[in-house]
Amino acid sequence: MSGTIPPAQPPPPPPDVRHPWVHPLSLWHWRHNPLRRSSDRLQGWIALALLLLVPFLGLVAMFTIGDAAHRHYVATAAEQRQTRHLTTAVLTHDAPRHPEPGSAEAKKTRYPVTVRFTDPLGRTRTAQADVLPGLSVDSRVDVWVESDGALTEPPMTGEQIRSRTMGWALLAFLTVALAGTAAYGAAAQVLHRRNMAEWESKWAETAPRWTTSP
C-alpha cells in the first residue's frame, strides 16, 4: 500500500564490522567511496606510517644494541683473559666409563670428577671438573682457574662474542617490530570502538522511524 510505513526491522549491521586487524593496508582505507569514514583513512595512514617506520627503527635499534653488546663482550673477554689462567689438573680417581666407548655420543659426554691442581697463588686445591669418560686416576687435564683459585670456563672466543652480539641485535629488532605491531593493534582497537559508538549513536536517531506504528 502506497505510503505505508514498513514494519519494524532489526537494526542493520554496522557498515564495517571487520576485525580491526584485517587488511590494515586494504583499498578500503584509501579508495574514494561514500562509505569510507575518516577513521578508515586514519587507520590506513597509521598502518602505512608504521610499515615504513618500524623497519627503519628496527635497523637503528639492531645496530645500536649490537654495537653496544659487541663492545661489552669484547671488554669482558679481555678481562677474562687477564683474570683466568690455564693450568694442569690431575684426576684423583677414575672417571666413569661411557656405555658406548668410541661412539659420537661418548666423544661429547663429560663426567664430573674430582681433580687436584695448583692455583695462581701456589696453593694446592681440589675441585670438580668435567672430563672425558674413561680417564684413569692421575690422568692430566687442562682446566681454567680464576685468580682466587676457583675453576671457571675459558675466556670467550671470537665466535662466542659474535654469536651473543647477533642475539642481542636480533632481539632489539624483534622488540621494535613487536612494539610497532602492538601500536597498530591499539590504534585499530580504539578506532573500532569509536566506529561502533558512532554507529550506535546514528542508529539511536534512525530507529524511531523504523519502529513507529502506522
Rank of each mutant, 00 (worst) to 15 (best):
Q189A: 05
H192Q: 13
P12V: 11
H192F: 13
R194E: 09
V131D: 01
V176I: 15
H23W: 02
G3V: 08
R164Q: 13
L191F: 07
R194F: 06
L151I: 13
A187Y: 05
A89M: 05
P20F: 10
Y111M: 02
Q80H: 02
V54A: 09
L57N: 11
W168C: 01
D130S: 11
T212C: 03
S147M: 14
R125N: 13
G122N: 09
A47T: 03
T211N: 04
D16E: 15
A177F: 10
Q80V: 02
A89Y: 00
W21E: 14
V137L: 06
P214R: 03
T87K: 08
D16P: 10
P10F: 10
A182N: 08
T114L: 09
A207R: 13
L121R: 11
H72G: 04
M62I: 06
T92K: 07
R193A: 11
Q82F: 01
W203G: 08
E79G: 12
A188S: 11
S2T: 04
H98I: 13
W210Y: 15
L86T: 08
E79A: 12
H70Q: 11
T88F: 02
A183G: 04
T114I: 12
Y184M: 07
A89D: 06
D16S: 13
A207N: 12
L191W: 01
T211S: 10
P214W: 04
E146M: 12
S213I: 10
H32F: 11
A150K: 14
E79H: 09
P20I: 01
M156E: 06
D40G: 01
V60M: 06
R31L: 14
L48E: 00
T212Y: 02
T88K: 10
M166H: 14
T118K: 00
